[in-house]
Design a protein around this nucleic acid. Structure first.
Length: 121
RNA sequence: CCAGGGGGCUGGGCAGCCGCGUUGUCGUGAUCUCACCCGGGACAUGCAGCGAGGAAAGUCCGGGCUCCACGAAACGAGGGUGGCGGGUAACGCCCGCCGGACGCGAGUCCAGGGAAAGUGCCACAGAGAGUAUACCGCCGAUGGAGGGAGACCUCACAGGCAAGGGUGAAAGGGUGCGGUAAAAGCGCACCGGGGCGGUGGCGACAUCGCUCGCACGGCAAACCCCACCCGGAGCAAGGCCAAAUAGGGGUGCCGCGUCUUCGGACAGGUGCGUUUCGCACCGAGGCAUCCGGGUUGGCUGCUCGAGCUGCGGGGCAAUCCGCGGCCCAGAUGAAUGGCUGCCCUUGCGAGGCAGGUGCCCCGAGCGAUCGGUGGCAUACCGUUUGCAAGACAGAACCCGGCUUACAGGCCCCCUGGCACU
């Protein structure tokens, strides 16, 4: 039973940004292989979304989503990062759940939007 | 009942399923580890306890704590505070009181020391703005000119005045009477103000008496003066452990010794051994500065504290004292949650609906009125049902304040008005 762990350093978040990218109305899912670290997740909600109360609530709801979905549908040995979007604030929970399942499936099949940060280094 | 003033409290409730953080003389373990057992530690899991706010916010004051600096201290610089008394660890906070301004009142507001130490400023308007002034105006007693027999009249030249008009935020005390040619603290009364004294009060101050004809406009959130207070930086403070870097390069300054047959020898430096001394290595580098490279993990600080609460007592109060009880977040990409149901509050909509209310109908009664499986209406009270909404806002070392944000609800005291008894 691989336990879910979180990613927490800035470098890991930046690395995830170069992986697969699937955008949904409420959030953007990033997925990237992490070289045998198991399933890990991270959440990013920027100041643009709202004040501390709004951001914290969004993180908690995302965390609840990920804990429910990842053990079954998550990509093994990948880092999963959810980025909050404006429309995800107080979005219907069932919709979010469906969108996450959809996004994970797309990611599993290797389909995603092109990485945002194009060509660097 | 209407309008208003002051103060305090609260900040949705209950339940179910699935989760998170932390604590435990707690239980479990074919797990890992110290070191094989015992035992300890780690990890997982079960159980039990606890788990955001009144502002956790802004980071504006005051402290605790930590490190740094410092001979006590004084003076100076810089910053702050500013009626008086009290509370406090302390404060720029709080309470009470004083003074002023506003309000019919309950009450509210005040950066509220000094303008008689000095400097400075007072825009515009206005004649004049702090050495007062004279635009319009008033007078013209006195002197002058003219007239008249004279009383006196005319002129407004000398001159007198600052009452009235006008300007302004402010015009060098105010009102009234007397006085005068017209005026003026010129005189008087009252009010205001200065000085001296008495009384009351811890005090700010109040009050009374005498006295002075009035001198002292405003601004100190202008400089300034006076009194009092203040060392600096902050939990990314500070402490411990682990890991990593392995000694690279540039520039500047100083130095690079003596002998030599150029192989070395001596002097010198470093390390080791207990030492005279021996062995090994170095024999050109040293210092300063800049660049480059590496680490930016864990534990601790870290939550029991100027703590919360009940009762009793002192005090008008802020608050203090005594006794008893309680343990109440410690996260770190940052726990305290996700979903659902019922209830509560508010708003919007729907159904006349077994209630109320109004009208009608029928019946009874002389009548007030009463009765009805009766009809209609219902905006109001109520009821059923559907939908929506439930504020401001998330601890980050900890306290005491201030300020700002905030849906709704509850309680207490007081004022003015209306009505009733």
């Amino acid at each position: 039973m691989s336990t879910l762990s979180t990613i927490r350093t800035r470098a890991e978040f930046l690395a995830a940004n170069r992986g697969l990218r699937v955008a949904r109305p409420g959030f953007v899912l990033l997925a990237r292989p992490n070289g045998g670290q198991g399933k890990r997740y991270g959440i990013t909600v920027t100041r643009k979304i709202g004040n501390a109360v709004v951001r914290n609530r969004m993180k908690r709801r995302f965390r609840a989503l990920l804990r429910a979905a990842l053990p079954e549908k998550g990509l093994p040995d990948h880092d999963h990062v959810l980025i909050g979007r404006d429309r995800g604030v107080e979005r219907n929970f069932a919709s979010l759940r469906a969108e996450l399942a959809e996004a994970l499936e797309l990611a599993a099949r290797g389909k995603g939007d092109p990485p945002r940060r194009r060509r660097r280094r």
